[in-house]
């Protein structure tokens, strides 16, 4: 049995189509990532799965339970961390945690093992009001509260948005440990580099799923010949490359540009010559391997 099963879910709001015929499965114990920008439909989908919103059409099951009919049972089984910090700002760290444990009919000590690693990092501040915590600490407290009733499925809506690169890495380490303890995790993120840390990823844009696959499979499906190109003046180089005859895409990647051709026949030295003729210096052209972001952008412009 799948932990999450979604079949042809659609949802419309007054002015916008939020979800358009979404179907996917998440196996038990899997770390499944929803990768997409703001407004793609991730939050709407997660609200349906957490029984907070009704789909217009389609069907969704969590642990085999229907999100519409069996919503009460599902709420006992899942842990949810919304995108917006939703704990009580005027309660202390400790009080928030106790509150959530009590609501789910359990105690902090009963399930302390599960949150030990995470909670230990904020325990020194347990008397502090939740509203006074830093972003990273709020995130850890929210995760502790979502876990305190030992859910079998954990649903995290953009837990790392606005969080710096170091804290993001630590957060993903925590997710890996939770996954190893058998919890199924569904996580949404706008950061493409986090896709590689998931077992399966779904790329979502404008309410539609563009692809579902393992990160390595997604990368394998990149269809074109891809080069990484550098020169001393990146801004002018980007504009010049867009004029290159037969070019398919030009995207900046750090100090280089990734450029692709549908035509297999275009060689490195042709690109080099072209830039040289345009007066560029410090030119470096090398074949590149597509990453998730290349794939995402290719699916977007298709």
């Amino acid at each position: 049995m799948s932990a999450i099963q979604v079949e042809h879910i659609s949802k419309n709001f007054a002015h916008a189509k939020a979800l358009d015929d979404i179907s996917f499965n998440v196996s038990k114990g899997e770390l499944f990532g929803f990768i997409g920008p703001d407004g793609a439909g991730k939050t709407t989908l997660f609200r349906i799965l957490t029984t907070l919103l009704l789909p217009d059409t389609g069907k969704a099951l969590v642990n085999g339970l229907d999100v519409v009919k069996d919503y009460r049972k599902i709420r006992q089984d899942i842990g949810y961390m919304p995108g917006k910090f939703s704990l009580y700002s005027d309660l202390s760290v400790e009080e928030n945690l106790n509150f959530y444990a009590t609501v789910f009919g359990t105690t902090v000590s009963e399930n302390y093992d599960l949150i030990r690693d995470i909670y230990a990092q904020i325990e020194p501040f347990k008397k502090r009001k939740a509203g006074k915590l830093s972003g990273g600490m709020k995130q850890k407290l929210a995760l502790s509260c979502a876990l305190i009733h030992k859910p079998s499925v954990l649903i995290l809506d953009e837990p790392t948005t606005g969080v710096d690169a170091v804290s993001r890495l630590e957060f993903w380490d925590m997710l890996k440990r939770l996954k190893n303890s058998g919890i199924t995790i569904l996580v949404a993120t706008p950061y493409m580099d986090e896709a590689g840390l998931c077992d399966q990823v779904a790329l979502i844009q404008d309410g539609k799923l563009m692809t579902i696959s393992s990160p390595s499979e997604v990368i394998k499906t990149y269809p074109w010949k891809l080069y990484s190109v550098k020169s001393d003046d990146i801004f002018r180089m980007l504009n010049d490359l867009r004029m290159f005859p037969g070019i398919h895409s030009v995207f900046a990647f750090g100090q280089a540009a990734h450029i692709s051709f549908k035509n297999e026949g275009i060689e490195e030295n042709a690109i080099h010559r072209y830039l040289e003729n345009k007066g560029h210096t410090g030119i470096l052209v090398s074949p590149a391997v597509a990453n998730i972001e290349d794939c995402f952008m290719e699916l977007m412009i298709k």
């Binding site: 703001d38 793609a40 606005g162 801004f235 900046a252 995402f296 977007m300 412009i301």
Partner: peptide, 22 residues
């Protein structure tokens, strides 16, 4: 933090504008 949350294509278009301003 001007680019939080937007899609990767828009994020790059935004940087094109930054390059241009510069």
């Amino acid at each position: 933090e001007p680019t939080g949350g937007v899609d990767p294509v828009t994020r790059r278009q935004f940087w094109d504008m930054i390059f241009e301003a510069s």
